[in-house]
Simulated assay, not measured.
Amino acid sequence: MGANNSSKTLVFDANEEVNFNHFEILRAIGKGSFGKVCVVQKNDTKKMYAMKYMNKQKCVERNEVRNVFKELQIMQGLEHPFLVNLWYSFQDEEDMFMVVDLLLGGDLRYHLQQNIRFTEASVKLFICELALALDYLQSNHIIHRDIKPDNILLDEQGHVHVTDFNIATFVSKGTKITTVAGTKPYMAPEMFYPRGQICYSFSVDWWSLGVTTYELLRGRRPFHIHSSTAATDIVHVFHTATVTFPPAWSEDIISLLHKLMDRNPEERFSCLADVQDFPYLSEVNWDAVLQKRLLPEFTPMKGRLNCDPTFELEEMILESKPLHKKKKRLAKRIKDTGKSRSALNGNLQTHLDSVEREFIVFNREKSRQDLNENQENLTVVQTKEEDEDGKNNNLQQL
């Protein structure tokens, strides 16, 4: 894919906004509900990233623009060792782009599908790292609402990173959320209360962590719930089902899972302090966890992307507007601007124009640079003020 999009000889203005032309497209590695992901290399720095791109027209037609904008808003304010962090966001005529950390270890769903059975020691570290990620989100008033193996990526060393903030939401201090969102098998019981009684907060993410932990250890989920299961049937499952634990599991991990999957949200573990104070994890060096000094027991296979290879075939063969042909396609469209616009109905074009106006451009490198410059300027001002104060004090002494 990259051969048709190589830009190695181009030189870019440092003040120019980052855009599609700044990247070389290498290969497709995944797809979501309305976006696809490919590996890219930034031409000037040679750094590798994952680029998620979402077709504007499809997002408008599926009424998903608001979710994209909300995800961008949330991710621009976050940066943490156990998250997939956003670096750039930009747009062109066709697509919206999000450039994020590249994690080469694959997601946990992929490894489960490869029949990997994680040891308790591996999962224990996962729990600690994910607990720190959830605590960070909580400190920023964010509920993820979709913690599951599919949304947990591994880096090359085997550390976990939470991704996909498409249905995440802000929650003000002391308030509760009443809207339903998530993936049914991982959603907490309180999210299935009768209409008008749904009321939940951060504890739903900790329930999802419990379900995910169980699945990683056993290869299947603790409850027989599927995406197609009706809400009334799910309520019945929660009232009647008993979670079983294999005899080989330690009492410690079973006790922790009972706390994470307590059906009463008031009794459930729902913050970092709960987990840190639990005997099973009380001796963990949490600073070492945060700094990634504890080595994971499971290491993804190196030299490969740890993802389904059919993604690239679909992009190259089945995709009607493949990314690696974008430049030629847009160049042709410039010649036929009137023709392409007239092909869209007025209402759709109005929505697309709105997307173009309201899209949030982001550049983490530039934000950091601006912050550093502001801090340097502040230091200079403070030093100057201190020097002036010193001179004034000397004058008063005279």
Rank of each mutant, 00 (worst) to 15 (best):
R66V: 13
R66H: 07
V68E: 10
V68C: 11
V68F: 04
F69K: 05
F69Q: 05
K70E: 01
E71C: 04
E71N: 04
L72N: 08
I74W: 07
I74D: 08
I74A: 09
Q76Y: 07
Q76V: 03
Q76F: 06
Q76N: 10
G77E: 10
L78Y: 15
E79M: 11
E79K: 15
E79T: 03
H80M: 02
F82D: 02
F82G: 06
F82L: 00
L83I: 00
L83H: 02
L83T: 00
L83S: 01
N85P: 14
N85G: 12
W87F: 14
W87S: 14
Y88K: 10
Y88A: 05
S89P: 04
Q91K: 15
E93R: 14
E94Y: 13
E94G: 08
D95R: 12
M96V: 03
M96D: 01
F97I: 13
F97M: 03
V99H: 08
V99S: 04
V100N: 15
V100E: 10
L102F: 12
L102H: 12
L103I: 01
L103N: 15
L103P: 10
L104I: 14
G105C: 08
G106I: 01
D107M: 04
R109M: 11
R109W: 15
Y110T: 00
H111A: 00
H111K: 03
L112K: 09
Q114V: 00
N115E: 09
N115I: 01
I116T: 10
R117N: 05
R117S: 13
R117W: 02
R117L: 06
F118H: 00
T119Q: 13
E120C: 02
A121G: 03
S122I: 05
S122C: 03
S122Q: 12
V123C: 09
V123I: 01
K124G: 12
F126G: 11
I127S: 12
I127K: 05
I127V: 11
C128D: 13
E129V: 09
L130G: 14
L130A: 08
L132E: 12
A133Q: 09
D135V: 05
Q138M: 10
S139D: 12
S139C: 10
N140T: 04
N140M: 10
H141R: 15
H141N: 11
I142S: 03
I143Y: 11
H144Q: 09
H144K: 05
R145Q: 09
R145W: 04
D146L: 06
I147Q: 08
I147K: 05
P149I: 05
N151W: 15
I152V: 12
I152P: 12
I152A: 02
L154N: 03
D155G: 07
D155K: 10
E156A: 12
E156G: 15
Q157C: 03
Q157G: 08
Q157T: 08
Q157E: 13
H159Y: 11
H159R: 07
V160D: 12
H161W: 08
H161A: 06
V162Y: 02
